[in-house]
Simulated assay, not measured.
Amino acid sequence: MAQEKWELRLITYMCPTHPVQLYELIMELLEESLDCYTSLLYESRAPGPFKDREDPFARNKVDLGFMTAASYMRLRKAGNKSVELLPVTPVFAHQMNVENKPGYFSDVIIHSDKKAHNVNTLLDLRGCTFAYSDEESLSGSVIILKTLKEKGENASFFGSKLRSGSHLASAQMVLSKQAEWAAVDSTTLLYSKKYMQDGGKDITLLETLGRLPPYPLVVNTNLKDTVKDAIIKTLLTLPQKPEWKKRFAKFGIIKFDSNSDGAYDGPAAQMWASQKEKLNIRYY
């Protein structure tokens, strides 16, 4: 007879931007550490709970979730009482993250052929076809609008725009020349480039923008405090476990570090609020 254990139910909205295998690894780590069973829901159609449906936390269908910073900020602004931020977040390797701090970046990428056409900065991309994951993505579109505004530009800067549905798809569009440029989640490029055609050698990193707020881990407010504490302890002590640290390093994760709601206030909140300036506004 199978041993009776309690079950920790996870959901990720971060795929295919991040590989689902990363969240399977987190699930495996928690199952071993907490001596429980785990299950994982994989929702690729949205970066967080759907706006027009009751979210699975409110329905008590899930315990622990992974979503984009923009989605968490939307839930927080709406006063969602079914989720709370877990004070821990993954820290990813990146050439700009020399201090190994929480947060991530937006990598502006072009096909290497564009270098032959004197494209050396973001402003050289005026009128070019732009691929983006979705309108709410901080790294895929919002930070681009913010940066262009700071440079005295607006949405008339864009030529054609292609909504790809994911950062991975945006990168593939640049590689296949469907789009001339894109802004993608830096962790997507870090992990996925080596699996692209010819190792993604035809993708050129033009600029890096950010740092953006950390990836939020949220829990159901009904989850027991002892379980929340056990999850936090397991993730924060990851560097003390060489075998697990090695396995997470394959996905670019250096460690897990502390996080707080303050990371989504101030400049982050101001940037998120700039979504009112949409990509599809055209000025002639």
Rank of each mutant, 00 (worst) to 15 (best):
M1H: 15
Q3N: 09
E4T: 14
K5Y: 11
E7M: 13
C15Q: 02
L25Q: 11
E28I: 02
E28Q: 14
L30Q: 04
E32A: 09
L34H: 09
D35L: 06
T38K: 00
S39L: 06
L41R: 09
G48F: 00
K61A: 12
V62G: 01
A69H: 12
S71W: 08
R74G: 07
S82R: 03
V83S: 04
P87Q: 02
P87M: 09
D113G: 06
K114Q: 14
L125D: 02
R126D: 05
C128P: 03
D134S: 07
D134Y: 15
L138I: 12
V142P: 00
E153R: 10
S160V: 04
K161P: 02
S166E: 03
S176P: 07
A182P: 13
V184I: 15
L189Q: 03
Y191V: 14
K193F: 01
K194P: 07
Q197K: 14
D198L: 01
K201P: 00
L205M: 12
P216G: 01
L217I: 15
N220G: 06
N222I: 02
D225N: 10
I231N: 05
T234W: 04
P239C: 05
K245C: 11
I254L: 15
I254S: 05
D257I: 00
N259Y: 04
S260C: 15
S260F: 02
Y264N: 02
D265K: 10
P267D: 11
W272G: 01
A273K: 12
S274T: 05
Q275F: 03
N280K: 12
Y283L: 15
